[in-house]
Simulated scan of single mutants.
Amino acid sequence: MKGPLFYAKILLFGEYGIIKDSKGLAIPYNTYQGALKKSKNLSEVSKKSNENLKKYFDYLVGLETTLVTFRLVEFKKDIEEGMYFDSSIPQGYGVGSSGALVASIYDKYADDKITVLENLTRDKLLKLKQIFSKMESFFHGKSSGLDPLNSYLSLPILINSKDNLEATGIPSQKEGKGAVFLLDSEIIGETEPMVTIFMNKMKNEGFRKMIDEDFAKYTDACIDDFLHGNMKSLFGNVKHLSKVVLDNFKPMIPTAFHKVWQKGIDSNDYYLKLCGSGGGGYILGFTENFEKTKKILKDYKLELVYRF
């Protein structure tokens, strides 16, 4: 048995903002993927995954929802026969490792599942997101459902607000000098503590005002520029966003990267932003000259996401 592949995702814009109902743009990232597999002889890693699936099965048994039903007897039997999730997606890196797992389980065991092949109306997208939110809450305590949705559909998704999503197209990649890239912090981040810090900060009126006025404004402008291919304007807005994040989200940025972050803003060679909840994992970068940026950041591991 080998299930279909489900890809990692990258939230290009909108981290934390989508919790507060501003815009977001998520794209599939097919460098990393995962699939359900079965084996009689499990390696240590596969055995751990199999044990985690047992815990997840227990969670689904107790899940109270009228949105979806699962073929749980079949799921349990497969786990007993040595099923595991074979994944190259790094965990705690903000690229949706649990999202791909959730997508694969919905795909295999959900009754009357919504498929990519049908006409994906806004209502269907919203229903999928709600189902995935409940399914993924097992991993993070609270989930928007966006990671599994992106992984399941393998399409760029534009989040206009909590209740308004659409599958979207992004400009095709060009062989230009510019790039979106990932910078590996080589630290594993955890979503839940970061979200807790954010929620506590949201109790502060000044912080809320900054989110509503600055963070949301630049995030929305970046998404608009990116989708319309306005690269010149995009870099101006990403610079503003990078500054806002450095000034207001310091706990989410590993301390070792504060200077590197500031250096990008000062030199205009590259701009950094959070990738997912932060606290470690990947940091997302934007540059108009990827070759030059690679030399400047030669001490770090960079991965190319998108060229323009």
Rank of each mutant, 00 (worst) to 15 (best):
E190W: 01
Q173R: 15
S133C: 02
E64L: 04
S185L: 08
D184E: 12
A103I: 02
S151E: 12
L60M: 10
E303Y: 11
C222T: 09
S133K: 01
M231N: 12
K40N: 15
D299C: 06
D184C: 11
T219I: 05
K23Q: 09
F57D: 11
D247W: 08
S242P: 01
T31E: 14
F57C: 10
V116H: 07
P90L: 03
D212Y: 15
S137R: 13
G145K: 05
N41E: 14
Y93W: 01
G94S: 02
Q262S: 11
S49A: 05
Y56I: 06
L284H: 09
F198V: 02
S172K: 15
Q130D: 03
Q173M: 14
G82I: 09
L227Y: 02
N237T: 12
I105G: 03
T115K: 00
E118N: 00
L101M: 13
S104Q: 07
K273I: 13
E118V: 00
L125H: 00
I223H: 03
G276D: 05
Y306G: 08
L72D: 04
S143L: 11
G17L: 14
S22L: 09
G34M: 02
I170S: 11
S154A: 13
L246F: 13
D224A: 04
L25T: 07
A110D: 00
K38E: 06
K77R: 14
F132I: 00
N230I: 00
I157T: 09
L274K: 12
A216I: 12
L149M: 09
Y109Q: 00
N268K: 13
I296N: 10
K40T: 15
L42H: 10
F215I: 10
D78Y: 03
I296L: 13
N289V: 05
K250P: 05
T191N: 05
Y306L: 11
P193M: 14
V195F: 10
D111C: 04
G141E: 10
T66N: 15
Y106G: 00
S137T: 10
R122T: 01
L155K: 14
E64C: 02
K37C: 15
K113L: 01
L25Y: 05
S267T: 15
Y282C: 04
L241N: 07
D78A: 12
T287K: 15
I19G: 04
I296S: 08
E51D: 15
T255P: 02
S22K: 13
G264N: 08
K239H: 08
G17I: 10
